[in-house]
């Protein structure tokens, strides 16, 4: 039978999944929960692709049929993946410094691929094989700075200066606070550093509130 993926016509066998056919063509479809022959339950919905009729279906579990038309990268797909990932992150403890999967995390890779904000730079840092600067006692803005940074400095072995701008998600900042406090790094100094790359005073105030003011209230 013949299947059309992203406009390319390809021969497919009965019972094959869209994902298999796409892989053969060299078209990459991101996956998260899928592990061939081990788990094919289509749980994560990251591998969604669009059918000719506009329906989104998971490529890992959908069997091909003759004349099937599939697109693997459309605005609708990107939007859906992003929202799914954001939902997943909202329930995820992003403690990348101490994570056993440090350095080989599909989730972080996916996030930077989908352009998700809210993942701090320090999630990427271990992916590049860097040790945690904070653990070494250096002032690094990684935990509160938006990821997606492919800047040289991190790969250079230097701590993050925050040039991609801050993350304003409360849970991320609160987690960062714990990390800083744990390693005896003064929150004032961190804020002082951050000022340079904060786009607006509103952003800065928000972060200050989450980082410092809240603590004062608690005490």
């Amino acid at each position: 039978m013949k299947v059309r993926i992203n406009g390319l016509e390809v021969e497919a066998r009965e019972g094959e999944k869209i994902l298999d056919v796409a892989n053969r063509l060299g078209i990459r479809i991101p996956t998260l929960c899928y592990l061939k022959n081990v788990y094919e339950g289509a749980s994560c919905r990251i591998c969604v692709v669009e059918l000719g009729n506009g329906k989104l279906i998971p490529a890992c579990a959908y069997e091909v049929s003759d004349g099937l038309t599939v697109s693997t990268d459309t605005p609708k797909i990107r939007e859906s993946r992003r929202t799914t990932l954001e939902l997943l992150l909202s329930a995820h403890r992003i403690t990348c410094q101490n994570c056993p999967k440090k350095g080989e995390c599909t989730l972080v890779e996916l996030c930077s691929e989908c352009g998700i904000e809210g993942i701090p730079v320090c999630a990427e840092c271990p992916l590049h094989g860097e040790d945690c600067f904070i653990a070494r006692g250096e002032i690094c803005l990684g935990p509160i700075t938006a990821s997606g940074c492919k800047a040289e400095c991190i790969r250079d072995g230097r701590a993050c200066e925050g040039c991609r701008g801050p993350v304003t998600r409360r849970d991320v900042i609160e987690r960062a606070r714990r990390i800083y406090i744990e390693h005896d790094i003064s929150l004032e100094t961190v804020l002082e550093r951050l000022k340079t790359y904060c786009a607006s005073s509103h952003e800065f105030d928000l972060i200050r509130e989450y980082l410092i003011v809240k603590e004062v209230v608690k005490e």
Partner: peptide, 12 residues
Amino acid sequence: GKCIPCRVGTKA
């Protein structure tokens, strides 16, 4: 709780 959109989505 099998898929993310429903499990986390309903919570959100």
